[in-house]
Write a protein that binds this DNA or RNA. Structure first.
Lengths: 349, 349
DNA sequence: TTTAGCACTCTAAGATTGCGAGTGCTAATT
DNA sequence: AATTAGCACTCGCAATCTTAGAGTGCTAAA
C-alpha cells in the first residue's frame, strides 16, 4: 500500500494543491504541466496523476474535470511539501501592538482569539485548559447563600475569579465560613491548582484526625469546590471568535453542513476534546478534514499551537477554517501568535 | 391613505395570512375563495385583493403568482385578526416540569431560553436588564490584585455573583480593603442595586466630611464598581439559545442574510437595544420584520413579553424567528412562559 | 519512459418548449 | 351597484435539448 512517491510526483502534488487552494477549481493536466516548471507534457502529467489517484492523494469530481486533493493529499502537502512564508516585520510589529496583556485572562484570551480571526479571516480560538498547572491559588472565600448552598469564590493567578456554588449538609454562619476560609487560605494560598486538586487535599484529609470539627468540614467543602470543575470541562475556558466568517466560504455554503458546524460550536464539547489532544504535541499541529473522526468538521481544518511559559503548556490556540485554506500563511500566523502569547504571559507573570 | 378596510376584506386577509403561514406559498384567488368560507367567487376575491394590495397589505412576487402578506399585512393580522389558541393543559404541565428555579440567575435564564427555543423551534432569548430594581445587594468584598487593580465581588440576590476589576490610585493592603468593605457592607447590604447606584452613594458622599480618610476612599471605590456596569449593557445578562434552528428556515437560506443575523447575535448590542424598548410595554409585544429599523431582522419577527414580580418588570423574554411564523401558537407560549417565570421568581424570592 | 493524437465523457450554460397557476379586464347577471 | 363568468394574457417553473469546453484514458509512435 505504502508505495513510494517519486520526487516528480511530489512536485506535481505540491503544485496541484497550491493551485487548487488558490483557485478552488479542479486542476487539469495541461495547467499542471505548464505551472509545474518541470517541462513535461500534459500526457505525462496525466500518467502521474493516475498514480497519485491510485495512492489516494487526489481525486476527480467527475470524469472530465481536473483533480483535487483528497484529505490524504492535503496531509502529505502540509507534512512534507509545504513551504511556509514567514511573516513580514511589519505584520509582527502590528501583532505586538494588538496583543497586550491587559485585563483578565478571559479578556486576554478573547482579544487573541479575535486577532487570529482577523488575520486569517477564519474563526479563531483560544483554550485555557483547566488542568493548566500554572494557575496558583491566591485566595479562597465562602459566602452563605439561601438554603444550604454556599458560594465559593476562588481568586486565581492575580487575575481571574471563579465562582462555584456548593451544597452542604446544614446551614453555616458567616463566622463559621470565615473560619473555614481562613484555615484553607493558610494551607492553600500560593499552591498550584493542580497540586491542590491532586495531592494537597488528600494529604490534609489524611492528617485530619488531629483537627477540629470545623477544619474537617472546611476540607470537605474544598473538595467539592476543586472537584466540581474538573469533572466537566468548564465552558468558560474556551473562546471562539469570528465564526460567522466561515459563512463566507463556498465549501460551507451548504446550509446543512453549516448548521452542524455551528451546533458543534455551541456545544463546544467535541471541539474541546479535539483540542485536548493537541496538548501533548508541541509546535503547530494540524487537523485535516475528518481526520479527527469528528464528522461536522468534514470540510474543515484546524491549525493549532500550544503556548507555554517555562516549558509548561498553558493552553492551546489556533484557527478553524475550510480545508482549502492558505496553510503557508495560516501556519506562521498561528505559530507566531502562540509565541507572542507565551512571551506576553511570561512577562506579566 | 387610511382608507377603511371592510369586514370582508379583513376576513380575506386573515385567511390569506393563515394560509401563507401554513404553506409558505403565495395564495391565489381561487384557493382563497374556497377556504374563506365566504361563498364568493374567485373574481370577487380578486377585486378585494387588488384593494388590499393598494393599501399595502399584500403583494405578489410576480404577475401570475398569488398574494403574500407584506409586513404591514402581518401587522394588521397580529393586531386585530389573530385568534390565538391557548396551550393545552398538558403543555402547561410539561412546562411546569421544565422550568425549575434551580441554580443561579444565569442558569435559570439559560434553561428558560432553551425551553422557549424547543417549544417554538426557533431561537429563544431571555434578558435580565441591569436596571432591574429587584436585585438587592447581599455582600461586597474587595481583594487586591497585582498593580493597582482591585477585584470587587458583589453578591446579589442570594444567587448571583458579579466580579468587577477597578483601578485605584495606590496599593492597598488586605487589611485596608477589609475595612473599606466592612464599612460599605454596613451601609449598603440589603439595599436595592438601583437605589445604591442612584441615591445612596450620592448621599454618602455628601455626608463624607465627618468620615475618616479610609471611608472616603471606600466610597470612591464603590462608585467605580457600581457605575461601570451601568454604562455599557453588560453581555452577561442576555441569553440566546437555539440560534441554529433558524438555519432550518427557507426564508433564511440566503447565506448573506444568515450571516448578518448571526453577526447581530454575536454583537448582541443591537438586539439588546430593541429589547430595551419592550421594557415599557406590558403583555406580549411583537416586532415584525424591519419595523425595528434594524435591517438584519428583515425577514424575522420577535415575540417578546416582560416578566415581573410585584408589578416590577424584571426582564424580557421571547423568541426570534422568521416573519412567517405560527403566531397563534408562539404568542401563547411566550405569554405563558413569562407568567410561569414571574411565578417561579415570586416563589423563590 | 515520454509524448502526440484521438475518441470519449461529462458538465455547465443557454435556448426552447409546454404547462399550470393566477391575474386583470370586460361584459353579463343579479 | 355589487357580483360573477369568461377570456386573453403573463409569468415562472420544470423538462428537454443543444452546444462548447475542458479534461480524461488509451494506444501507438518516438
Amino acid at each position: 500500500m505504502a508505495e513510494e512517491i517519486g520526487d516528480r510526483a511530489q512536485r506535481l502534488l505540491k503544485v496541484l494543491v497550491e493551485s487548487y487552494i488558490r483557485s478552488g477549481q479542479p486542476v487539469g493536466s495541461r495547467t499542471l504541466a505548464r505551472d509545474s516548471g518541470l517541462d513535461l507534457s500534459a500526457a505525462t502529467v496525466r500518467n502521474a496523476m493516475a498514480d497519485l489517484e491510485e495512492l489516494g492523494m487526489v481525486s476527480s469530481p467527475h470524469t472530465s474535470a481536473g483533480r483535487i486533493p483528497t484529505n490524504r493529499g492535503y496531509r502529505m502537502f502540509v507534512d512534507s511539501l509545504l513551504t511556509v512564508k514567514p511573516l513580514s516585520e511589519r505584520e509582527i510589529l502590528a501583532m505586538n501592538g494588538q496583543i497586550g496583556s491587559e485585563g483578565t485572562g478571559q479578556e486576554f484570551a478573547a482579544s487573541v482569539s479575535e486577532y487570529l480571526s482577523e488575520m486569517t479571516e477564519m474563526a479563531g480560538m483560544v483554550m485555557i485548559p483547566r488542568t493548566a498547572k500554572r494557575s496558583s491559588l491566591r485566595h479562597i472565600e465562602f459566602m452563605p447563600l439561601s438554603d444550604r448552598r454556599i458560594l465559593a469564590i476562588l481568586v486565581i493567578n492575580e487575575k481571574d475569579v471563579q465562582n462555584t456554588v456548593i451544597k452542604v449538609d446544614r446551614q453555616y454562619s458567616t463566622a463559621e465560613l470565615q473560619q473555614a476560609a481562613n484555615y484553607l487560605n493558610s494551607e492553600l494560598v500560593g499552591q498550584e491548582l493542580y497540586d491542590v486538586r491532586h495531592h494537597i487535599l488528600k494529604e490534609l484529609r489524611e492528617t485530619k484526625d488531629g483537627l477540629e470539627q470545623m477544619m474537617q468540614q472546611a476540607i470537605t467543602m474544598a473538595e467539592q469546590v476543586f472537584e466540581q470543575p474538573g469533572s466537566k470541562p468548564d465552558r468558560d475556558d474556551f473562546v471562539l471568535s469570528g465564526q460567522t466568517r466561515l459563512m463566507g466560504f463556498e465549501e460551507l455554503s451548504n446550509i446543512e453542513k453549516l448548521r452542524g458546524l455551528f451546533e458543534a460550536f455551541n456545544e463546544k464539547q467535541g471541539i474541546l476534546q479535539l483540542l485536548d489532544q493537541c496538548l501533548d504535541g508541541d509546535g503547530v499541529q494540524i487537523f485535516i478534514g475528518d481526520e479527527s473522526g469528528y464528522s461536522v468538521l468534514d470540510e474543515c481544518s484546524m491549525v493549532t499551537s500550544s503556548y507555554h511559559v517555562d516549558g509548561e503548556v498553558l493552553g492551546i490556540l489556533g484557527v478553524i477554517g475550510p480545508t482549502r485554506m492558505a496553510y503557508e500563511r495560516v501556519i506562521p500566523i498561528v505559530d507566531v501568535t502562540a509565541k507572542m502569547v507565551s512571551a506576553a504571559l511570561a512577562q506579566s507573570k
